[in-house]
Design a protein around this nucleic acid. Structure first.
Lengths: 199, 199
DNA sequence: CACCCATGTCAACGACGATTGACTTAGCCC
DNA sequence: GGGCTAAGTCAATCGTCGTTGACATGGGTG
């Protein structure tokens, strides 16, 4: 009644349950990644342009929303299309230039880290990582002890991501060269099939 | 006056400000590491056997306590006494058997990870890591590009720690062998002085 | 057009936790 | 021993957040 203009809300898609739900989910993925589990539902709903009550309606509660967002964040990393010969250098360069280059991946990773450090979500994450992360890597690596090697591979990758995350800025100059050189060497070593050096 | 025994609190050190303060700090270090920033001051105070209000008196508030605890958690890792020749294998074995082996180190690391994923504490952590972690490693490594190499070194180490943290249990059997073998190889590579392969 | 259900809005509740200030008490100095 | 200050205790306040149920409304269906 104060100002007529404020009452007009000609949202392009009102009454669209699916769109609303997915908007909430997207906002949740972002907030959970950026802030962590301690972000508020009001923030999530606000960013999605929806009401808090809809979170309950569509997802049941905060924890369920978190689980949903976590699952949705790990669809499938297109690992299979990486070439074994060029992978090492390419991934090293990508890492050196992140987090500026691949923002979506960075968000997903932050999400993963936060989930890993939360006692309530850690078990869930373990299963998820097993399925959507370790599994593909194991297959992609192939060879003997693929499972154990996949874990070392993933661990190294995570370590470099953490480093990039903490630094926050892309590497440059000589430092970038050294980084790429060493990281590339590590991945090359980890990709290489073990020539029956088992025992 | 219900039960006289309950009224007797012959604490060995009552009215000892310093002891109380340090007890709170110790409890904070533990809780912040185990639970994260979302632990309650009541929990911390309770574990320290002190009152919540004393947290304010001695530290000013929760955030200040967190910062204090973070600083106190990174005294000095006795890195200098590691032997370059045996380091790789020893650290790989330690990692393979953690977190059961070195609980204190695990706690400190959890603390670090939590701090890294908190926007407010991340800058502080950056400085801290620089001083108490990267610096010593850089010196210990020596040689050309020591700074850049130290970062890769630290990143790898962190990655393996994260993996161990997520798994939660020590490695065994063949998996342990492979892990030690590969991790050891990585560290050996990273420790090795670059033989003027700069350009 | 009228009905009805799905969608969206709103306000309030209940719990929890950090913070605060007033109060009590122990230890020390004179 | 008396008082003064530091150390410790307690209860209340304030804000926030997840949750809940009642209410409004749009839009398709008969």
């Amino acid at each position: 009644m104060t100002d007529p203009a404020l009452l007009v809300r000609p949202s392009p898609r009102r009454r669209d349950a699916e769109a609303t739900r997915s908007a909430i989910l997207e906002a949740a993925k972002k907030q959970f990644a950026l802030v962590g589990y301690d972000c508020t539902l009001r923030d999530i709903a606000g960013e999605a342009g929806a009401d808090v009550a809809l979170v309950k309606r569509y997802f049941g509660g905060k924890e369920a929303l978190f689980v949903e967002a976590l699952k949705a964040s790990f669809g499938s990393d297109d690992l299979h299309e990486w070439d074994h010969r060029t992978f090492s250098h390419e991934i090293a360069a990508t890492l050196a230039d992140s987090p500026h280059v691949d923002e979506a991946r960075t968000h997903r990773f932050q999400f993963l880290l936060r989930a890993a450090t939360s006692p309530t979500t850690a078990p869930l994450l373990n299963l998820l990582v097993q399925d959507r992360f370790l599994g593909p890597i194991r297959e992609w690596l192939g060879g003997a002890d693929a499972d154990a090697r996949a874990r070392v591979f993933a661990a190294s990758y995570i370590g470099f991501l953490v480093e990039r995350l903490i630094r926050g800025e892309a590497l440059q100059g000589r430092e970038r060269e050294v980084f790429i050189e060493q990281v590339s060497a590590i991945f090359t070593m980890l990709i290489a099939l073990p020539d029956s050096a088992g025992g």
